[in-house]
Amino acid sequence: MTDRRALMIADRRVRDTARAVVEADFAHLKANLSRKGLSERAMDRVAEGAQEVYDEAVEVASDNKGALAAIVAALVLWFARNPILDAVFGDEDETDAEDD
C-alpha cells in the first residue's frame, strides 16, 4: 500500500508540474496576443508571403529577361489589337457606309 501511495504522490507531482507548464504557456499566449491581435498577425503573415513571392518573381524575371520582354510585348499587342486591326484593315463600319 505504501508503494501505491508513493506512486500516487509522484503522479500528482508530475500532473501539477505539467499543469503549471500549460498554465504558463497559456499566460504567455494571452500576453502575446494582447500585444498583437490575430488579425494583425494574419496581415503580417500575408505581407511576408507576398514579399517572398515578389522577391522570387524579381529573381526569375532577372534570370529570364527575354521571356519577360516577350510576355510584355504580347500583352501590349493584345490590348492594342483593335486599333492595330483598324489601322491595317480599316474600319468595317466605314466600308459598309461606302457600299450603301
Score class of each variant (00 low, 15 high):
residue 40 E to Q: 06
residue 11 D to T: 10
residue 71 I to F: 07
residue 72 V to W: 00
residue 39 S to D: 11
residue 44 D to E: 14
residue 8 M to L: 13
residue 80 A to F: 03
residue 46 V to G: 01
residue 34 S to C: 08
residue 61 A to S: 08
residue 3 D to H: 06
residue 23 E to Y: 04
residue 12 R to S: 11
residue 39 S to G: 02
residue 76 V to N: 00
residue 47 A to I: 06
residue 11 D to M: 14
residue 30 K to I: 08
residue 6 A to H: 06
residue 79 F to Y: 08
residue 23 E to T: 09
residue 85 L to T: 13
residue 72 V to Q: 03
residue 89 F to E: 10
residue 91 D to C: 03
residue 94 E to F: 13
residue 91 D to I: 11
residue 43 M to W: 04
residue 27 A to C: 04
residue 16 D to H: 05
residue 3 D to T: 05
residue 89 F to R: 09
residue 96 D to K: 14
residue 51 Q to G: 04
residue 37 G to S: 15
residue 86 D to W: 11
residue 95 T to V: 11
residue 11 D to G: 15
residue 23 E to I: 06
residue 58 V to Q: 09
residue 8 M to D: 11
residue 56 E to W: 05
residue 36 K to G: 03
residue 42 A to M: 13
residue 15 R to V: 11
residue 95 T to L: 08
residue 31 A to F: 07
residue 45 R to M: 14
residue 34 S to E: 15
residue 76 V to Q: 02
residue 68 L to G: 00
residue 94 E to N: 07
residue 80 A to D: 05
residue 61 A to G: 01
residue 25 D to R: 12
residue 88 V to P: 02
residue 2 T to I: 15
residue 73 A to E: 04
residue 30 K to G: 05
residue 15 R to I: 15
residue 22 V to E: 12
residue 22 V to W: 04
residue 29 L to C: 07
residue 58 V to G: 00
residue 73 A to H: 00
residue 98 E to F: 13
residue 56 E to H: 07
residue 71 I to N: 03
residue 3 D to S: 09
residue 33 L to M: 13
residue 25 D to H: 10
residue 28 H to R: 13
residue 17 T to F: 13
residue 79 F to V: 08
residue 91 D to N: 13
residue 92 E to D: 12
residue 56 E to N: 08
residue 69 A to D: 08
residue 18 A to V: 14
residue 87 A to Q: 09
residue 45 R to I: 12
residue 45 R to N: 14
residue 5 R to Y: 06
residue 59 E to M: 12
residue 28 H to N: 08
residue 44 D to P: 00
residue 21 V to M: 12
residue 54 Y to H: 05
residue 4 R to I: 10
residue 49 G to K: 09
residue 40 E to H: 04
residue 64 N to T: 06
residue 31 A to P: 00
residue 84 I to K: 02
residue 19 R to F: 06
residue 61 A to H: 02
residue 72 V to F: 01
residue 91 D to W: 02
residue 7 L to Y: 05
residue 58 V to R: 09
residue 96 D to I: 15
residue 40 E to W: 00
residue 40 E to P: 01
residue 71 I to V: 15
residue 58 V to D: 03
residue 11 D to Y: 03
residue 51 Q to N: 05
residue 74 A to Y: 01
